[in-house]
Design a protein around this nucleic acid. Structure first.
Lengths: 187, 187
DNA sequence: AAATTTATGTCAGCCATATTGACTTATTTC
DNA sequence: GAAATAAGTCAATATGGCTGACATAAATTT
């Protein structure tokens, strides 16, 4: 799941702050008074948590039927969207170690969803490709998520949809927006 | 949850082939032509993945310093936001088993971040409360996420911010929108 | 009052995902 | 030729989650 986790840095001694949690709170707005600057964005934090929880829940039943888990989904997704991606790049996107990738990738290859090809310019590389079967599964996993997203965007209208997309883009670490955009805006 | 997941079990979809990224940049904002009805929403799927990945990455360093993990964060968050919540309700929100909750909750209680009180009307219940220390930590974990969100919303303006919030609300399973709204709009 | 159900907790074992560290094999680069 | 890089593997460990089986106390039903 997803966490509402947050994180920053530090360690820190204690704070004493206290604040509002119990009932009275800062905002109190019902539907949503916008939090004042510096106030915790409880509403958005929880909406992100619940939205993501349901979003990622969509493909689970499908994965179960294939004896795959979310890790397989992630790998298949990015390999499918980036044909010929070398292993190192996949590790970089997923931000996991190659040991972690190992089992999952092996299973996907053994089951015929992903293929490897030795790189032409650099024969040390093992370039990854989704097979026809892999593309199929990737599409199938994306289908319920796409339906969910399309319904939400349609309800918002074109301007609202653009705002939602921009919001997500701005939530990505600034340093990585350019790089992730390469993947994202590919269609 | 996250899938393009994050969390444990499920994952995300993928992109399909295509290659090359055009390089066009980062911002591009709107960018990608909206997918036709029924087409995979690759762009939004990936934006959600990256946005959530960075969003939940924020608190990890803080948690490390306390020897807590994301599971502790989730529990502390919801207990803090819902003082007096019985265990069963927490399980329902997190959608995990009581066995899974067990260790995490025990550690939070032993370390003095969460307290239990026997319910008055139903003495079988153990109502959960964040201690002053727990409220502190919850705020501290929320801080970097709130900063991230506030910056994105500020860049969008009031209308865009409202659209972003509505988008997330619409992404939640329809049957659960009402229930989650109780938590969310609480401040 | 007895029987049953509910709320919570706990023991035990297992699985999936991910980590760190050490090392190997090709292959490319210096 | 030496060093660096891309990939893969072995081993041990951590985390978070799960199922099943029980136990206890308190509320509800009968």
């Amino acid at each position: 799941m997803a966490d509402i986790n947050f994180s920053t840095t530090a360690s820190a001694p204690d704070r004493t702050a206290a604040a509002t949690i119990d009932g009275s709170g800062p905002d109190a707005g019902a539907a949503a008074a916008a939090p004042a600057a510096g106030e915790p964005q409880w509403e958005m934090i929880e909406l992100l948590f619940f939205a993501y929880r349901d979003f990622i829940g969509d493909p689970d039943a499908i994965l179960d039927a294939f004896d795959f888990g979310r890790a397989h989904h992630r790998v298949l997704h990015f390999v499918n969207r980036n044909p010929g991606m070398p292993v190192a790049e996949l590790l970089n996107i997923l931000k996991i170690t190659k040991q972690s990738l190992g089992r999952v990738l092996r299973e996907l290859i053994e089951a015929g969803y992903v293929e490897q090809q030795t790189g032409e310019s650099d024969r040390r590389q093992r370039l990854l490709f989704a097979t026809a079967r892999g593309r199929d599964l990737a599409l199938r996993l994306a289908a319920p998520q796409s339906t969910r997203i399309a319904a939400a965007l349609a309800a918002l209208g074109p301007e609202g949809a653009a705002a939602a997309r921009e919001f997500l883009r701005l939530m990505i670490n600034a340093e990585e927006r350019a790089e992730t955009a390469r993947f994202v805006a590919r269609t």
